[in-house]
């Protein structure tokens, strides 16, 4: 782990709320993590945990009525003289020139649904050329050659002809590859992949994960992988952030989070997944109840009503903070964390 080096992207205490008629939804509530070049950060959680809103917040494309209300997102950019400079994305306007120059060029996004993120009426090639020429001063011919090279790089066979095909002419896996090529067209240093393989089959998923890994080896970019699939995270991530109802409950190196998970949520979640190696036909340990709706988020630790180790009078009253429990391993749980003084 080269975590002593400076992170390329650092998120501190990010809070994004949705102001709806029914009330305020705290979609992301104090997310803190770093993304390093050449590494993969996995963000894992179930529906409503805020993992996608985190990605949208970083790109500053949170849809209304959502808004970042607090926190800092800092991106390290290379300046022209080779120096690096920290840019606070939270202080930029959503549509400012600088934000637009970062979106796509420095931080690119790969969506879950490859069909809806590509325009059905333009060829793959034209879409990627358009995106590339938005950020780079290159001629159409140069761009086209670059795109063919890119399509080859992401493993699309016969790239010379694929460049002129429409998204509907490609299969799901190929569309996802095209989408990755689109994201890579401006050579981003951070690639955010939001459930990139959820819509795909197992064997295609394996292909795409393999592709992401080899691209990272070649380009040295940072990948932020957002998924609900613990298996994908275990397979891909170097660092893991586990979220529950907008809050980071545990984060750390992948081996620590999976091997010595500390938070009761992470522990129960991992235990409840049937594994190829677990004993068949026995009752699985489960987490009781269902995920509450963000409108009715429980007070204190949001997990306390479902938590097997709940401390009455503490977990339902106070919100735990992230505390170090090991080498770069943080947990927000009162089991590992001094209980705040009453009344504070």
């Amino acid at each position: 782990m080269q975590n002593d080096s400076q992170p390329i992207l650092s998120v501190r205490n990010l809070k994004t709320n949705f102001f709806t008629d029914e009330g305020v939804v705290r979609a992301v509530d104090g997310a803190t993590f770093d993304v390093h070049l050449g590494q993969t950060l996995g963000i894992v959680g179930e529906s409503g945990c805020g993992k996608s809103v985190t990605a949208l917040s970083i790109l500053r494309i949170v849809p209304r009525p959502g808004r970042i209300v607090d926190g800092e997102i800092t991106l390290r950019r290379e300046t022209e003289n080779g120096q690096s400079q920290d840019v606070a994305l939270t202080s930029l306007g959503e549509n400012s020139r600088e934000m637009r120059s970062i979106r796509g060029a420095e931080i690119a996004l790969v969506f879950q649904e490859p069909m809806t993120s590509l325009s059905p009426v333009h060829t793959i090639g034209n879409q990627i050329i358009g995106a590339a020429r938005l950020h780079r001063q290159i001629s159409k011919q140069e761009a086209r050659e670059m795109v063919i090279e890119l399509l080859g790089l992401v493993g699309i066979p016969r790239a010379e002809s694929a460049v002129d095909s429409y998204p509907m002419q490609l299969s799901g896996g190929m569309r996802q590859r095209a989408l990755i090529a689109l994201a890579l067209s401006c050579d981003p240093r951070v690639l955010i992949a939001d459930e990139p393989t959820t819509a795909l089959d197992v064997t295609t998923q394996a292909q795409i994960l393999d592709l992401l890994r080899s691209l990272q080896d070649q380009k040295g970019m940072a990948i932020m992988l957002i998924t609900h699939n613990m298996g994908v995270i275990a397979e891909m991530a170097d660092q893991v952030v586990v979220m529950y109802l907008g809050r980071v409950v545990e984060e750390g190196p992948v081996n620590a989070v999976f091997g010595e998970s500390k938070h009761p949520y992470t522990q129960s979640l991992l235990r409840s997944i049937p594994s190829i190696h677990s004993t068949p036909k026995v009752q699985l340990p489960t987490i009781t109840g269902t995920i509450p709706h963000p409108y009715n988020r429980p007070a204190g630790c949001p997990f306390h009503p479902r938590c097997p180790d709940v401390i009455p009078g503490v977990c339902d009253k106070h919100e735990p903070e992230l505390h170090t429990v090991g080498d770069e391993h943080l947990v927000s749980c009162f089991l590992y964390h001094p209980v705040p003084e009453a009344g504070s």
Partner: peptide
Amino acid sequence: MTIEQSVEVGQE
């Protein structure tokens, strides 16, 4: 997109 999913789950 996942945003929609979470909103939908939310409504439920």
